[in-house]
Design a binder for these strands. Sequence first.
DNA 1: GGTACGGCCTGACGTTAGGTGAGAGTCAAG
DNA 2: CTTGACTCTCACCTAACGTCAGGCCGTACC
Lengths: 255, 255
Amino acid sequence: MDLKGLTVKELARLAGVSVRTLHHYDAIGLLRPDARSGAGYRLYGRGQLLRLQQILFFRELEFPLAEIARMLAEPDFDPARALRGHRKTLEDRIGRLHRLLDTLDKTVAHYEGEHMLTEEEMYRGFAPEKITRMKREARERWGNELVEASEQRVRGMTREKWEAVGREGAAVNADLAALLDRDPGDAAVQSVVARHRAWIEHFWKPDADSYRGLGRGYAEDPEFRAFYENVAPGLADFLRRAIDRYCENFPAKEN
Amino acid sequence: MDLKGLTVKELARLAGVSVRTLHHYDAIGLLRPDARSGAGYRLYGRGQLLRLQQILFFRELEFPLAEIARMLAEPDFDPARALRGHRKTLEDRIGRLHRLLDTLDKTVAHYEGEHMLTEEEMYRGFAPEKITRMKREARERWGNELVEASEQRVRGMTREKWEAVGREGAAVNADLAALLDRDPGDAAVQSVVARHRAWIEHFWKPDADSYRGLGRGYAEDPEFRAFYENVAPGLADFLRRAIDRYCENFPAKEN
DNA sequence: GGTACGGCCTGACGTTAGGTGAGAGTCAAG
DNA sequence: CTTGACTCTCACCTAACGTCAGGCCGTACC
């Protein structure tokens, strides 16, 4: 079979996917063949091979197919830029697997009576990538629309803007940490909380309820809590209380 | 809530799984709580925490839940031994991810006009081969040493030898299928089983226990079973029984 | 030309492992 | 008592294919 393109079996073999997968991707419009032979056989050219590779990278990172299709369809989709993002995520995963191996070794040592395995040690390395988990939780707390709107806002940012937002967030956290010895209702603290709210609005626009919920999440979610406690011990609860006070008189913020 | 055990939320948080997952595992009998509170709350103790860890290791390696349940239920299941098998598989995965990073870098270079990406290079690191799944299972059943020895033998084969071995295996299966109406202990059947054992020794040298375990695997593993049932209906169980009979007087085989 | 076999097509049912939502009981603090 | 977080069971739903079936296609061989 040599008809100016690869048949499904040839491509399936080359890419390590099933023929059924290729049929499925064609059916949903994710990967259409370049052409069809007179008998109706699918024929894939080089461009489809590269596209399938992009799809497989996103799939490897557990993106849903519908989302892959959407991203590939964006007018400003840049394959090289996407790949650079994937690299970071793959490196994170390798790091996770190393942590899992560490957990494994500690568990073997535990079974051999050589190590006392704590509950916290037991599950290190299992949790999926943090951003995906946080995204799921954000959906659970605030609904899907907010998360999508948040992603749209983030996606529209330039790299420079994104880095400025990152610096702004770190500055807010540092300023809050410096005010830890004050009452959460203190005017200086509340001023920083207002900056925090403005920072959040790079991502989404909270009302009083959802902002209060966010504060609670900072204190109660183990990953958020660990993050803030790492900035300064006591910061997670302090920020939660400061946000609660702020929400007692939630200013209408124009923007 | 401090009632001599963890509630679903506490365990879910600790282990990084969902409450729904814990409900599901309870419903299918995979992970039952130690106790129930007066109100019907599930309460998990330390033993369940360790068991959940074992489950999560198997899950990480993509074992189906039903299979995880079966393996955990085997009388001779040894957690430390299982973990040692997992370690090898996780190391393989890290290796695969490094290959994927290599593919990624080559692709970025391709997009930047600095590398000519071949079709073979395009998909390196993506799909673990099907043999990897079977290798994983073999490790869980028989330990790592046998699998490594098997790979050494296969690696030393020429292509011609490999094809001859393939034909020999098919012939053994066909002969077994032709004897399906006989008793598994019949002399002719046992003669074919001896040929089957000789065939297996192209890959590894079983003793009576491991050969019996292989027979069991043929009948119980869904992929092996499907393969043999495809050759002839009833063949998987027949072969398992024939191997059991053969192992009652396991000949010392010189080679 | 007929046969055999591997390859292709479309159509359609089935599967696994939870996700999601609902209604109602439980627990602890104010 | 109220409130809010937590729990229970029940039940519908889903993504991404896997599997099977019936029939056409292409090539080699008799």
